[in-house]
Write a protein that binds this DNA or RNA. Structure first.
Length: 433
RNA sequence: GGAGAGAUGGCUGAGUGGUCGAAAGCGCUCCCCUGCUAAGGGAGUAAGGGUGAUUAAGCCCUUCGAGGGUUCGAAUCCCUCUCUCUCCGCCA
């Protein structure tokens, strides 16, 4: 949620900022509704004050020996006030609820450092690391490689569930597990994150806190039995909610958490995209980094968090580029985002493998997550950041495609070998999976 | 799933219809005393919002798990829900 006071007082300025995202905020009609709210609130509070005074008067009359005439007239006066109070309260609640609902649909303000742009085509390449491999033959895509390794089966998954799922077996299932453990270990041992294990089902409040609800319900999988619960679309939701309703001491910050979870996304509205293979699935594994900082350190924390995600790509010797998202491509909760895009020879292009965002105080306001330097200080909103490090399924795809040889062997990068029993290669196999 | 107990400020914990936004303690802040690895004394210390001159004082409203209700008046009474704890059952 953006700062409501700022929205009220500088509606035009906020509207101009949000316009950079392509979000249209009608400043005039908002201003009018806000004026109505204010007038009603002032009236309401005055009525409540009158009622409180009257109630106290009744108390005084009763305790001081009953004077029936005074009591009757006071009660009569209060009945009139109560009547108007009830009406005003109803009107106020209606407008207040509608304003609150509206506030929850407003995306975060765009950071000043963000370039203009309408969509992904106008994102800015910040740097490029590593070169696409010179394979010297027509690269296979990960689907062909996976089938040759006899460990990637989409039709079985379709039978078990439906489209956009995969069954991994043998070397590939183990490779995925190796990647998860490798990433977790690097973040814990080398980057200093605290490993957390979190629920994979979350309630509406948590999803509202991080910004998926109320606006993006169609992207989520709900569950039939408990309608308040949803499968997590990312570990960002449960992990960032660790900060909910908390007041941190600045000395406790930054909090840096890492979690591995499966992620579930309905992929509504992406029917045509990436139908083949593991790139876009309803269920995928992800290792997620979350940082909670004081406001003065969050931009620096975004660079650090992004570097931590890049470290995984570097260790796995995967070529990638860093994109600074333009205003129009920024996610709902984010003020500034770097996407990491890995090179995929099978597609002959860079594809997103990580997204690192500074949400500044946007989620903190929804979450009531605050901090202060001393107990006697007034708490202020923390800043929250999150980033994939990395999307495991896509990392697996990238490894297969970048490290294949003409015979279909996959070379395992050095740091990953201990997680695969020391093996240096995966070999294609004959026969069925 | 069954039975019972509970949910109060950063924390612990009093408070069963009328200046209770809430005793006390801890913690924290400031001051004083003392003087050396500690202790004592005093004062202050919830949040959000409205009004005020958009950042003062003051005044006011709301909030004691959430939502309803009774009442002139609710932390206190009633109903529903959520969560926590204890015991039993079941279970990985």
């Amino acid at each position: 949620m953006i700062d409501i006071k700022l929205l009220r007082n500088e509606t035009g300025q906020v509207a101009a900022n949000l316009a950079r995202r392509g979000f249209v905020l009608d400043a005039d009609s908002y201003g009018k509704e806000e004026e109505r709210r204010k007038a009603l609130q002032v009236r309401l509070e005055d009525l409540r004050r009158q009622r409180n005074e009257g109630s106290r008067a009744v108390g005084r009359i009763k305790s001081g020996g009953v004077d029936p005439a005074a009591l009757a007239s006071e009660m009569e006066r209060l009945a009139v006030i109560d009547h108007e109070l009830e009406e005003t309260e109803g009107a106020f609640r209606t407008i207040e609820a509608s304003l609150e609902a509206f506030h929850l649909t407003l995306p975060n303000l765009v950071d000043a450092s963000i370039p203009d742009g309408r969509d992904a085509s106008q994102n800015v390449e910040v740097r490029r690391v590593g070169d696409p491999p010179q394979l010297g033959f027509t690269p296979h895509d990960h689907v062909a490689i996976g089938e040759a390794l006899c460990g990637m089966d989409f039709s079985e998954a379709a039978r078990i569930t439906g489209a956009r799922f995969v069954v991994l077996k043998g070397d590939l299932a183990r490779l995925q597990r190796a990647l998860i453990n490798f990433m977790m270990d690097v973040h814990v041992a080398e980057h200093g994150y605290e490993e957390v294990y979190v629920p994979h089902l979350v309630n509406r409040a948590s999803l509202t806190g991080t910004g998926q609800l109320p606006k993006f319900e169609s992207d989520l999988f709900g569950i039939a039995k408990i309608t308040d619960w949803y499968l997590i679309p990312t570990a960002e939701v449960p992990v960032t909610n660790l900060a909910r309703d908390r007041v941190f001491l600045n000395t406790e910050l930054p909090k840096r958490w890492v979690a591995h979870t499966p992620c579930y996304r309905s992929e509504a509205g992406s029917y045509g995209k990436d139908l083949k293979g593991m790139i876009r699935q309803h269920q995928f594994e992800k290792v997620e980094l979350v940082t909670v900082t004081t406001p003065d350190h969050s931009m620096e924390a975004l660079e650090t968090l992004t570097a931590h995600a890049e470290a995984i790509l570097n260790k796995l010797e995967l070529p990638y580029r860093v994109m600074l998202l333009c205003a129009g491509d920024l996610g709902f909760a984010s003020a500034k985002t770097y996407d990491l895009e890995v090179w995929l020879p099978g597609q002959n292009q860079y594809r997103e493998i990580s997204s690192c965002s500074n949400c500044k105080d946007f989620q903190a306001r929804r979450l009531q997550a605050r901090s202060r330097a001393r107990m006697s200080d007034k708490p202020e909103w923390v800043h929250t950041l999150n980033g994939s490090a990395l999307a495991v399924g896509r990392t697996l795809v990238a490894l297969l495609e970048n490290r294949q040889d003409e015979g279909g062997r996959i070379s395992i990068p050095e740091p990953l070998r201990p997680y695969l029993g020391g093996r240096s290669h995966l070999e294609p196999r004959r026969g069925g999976g």
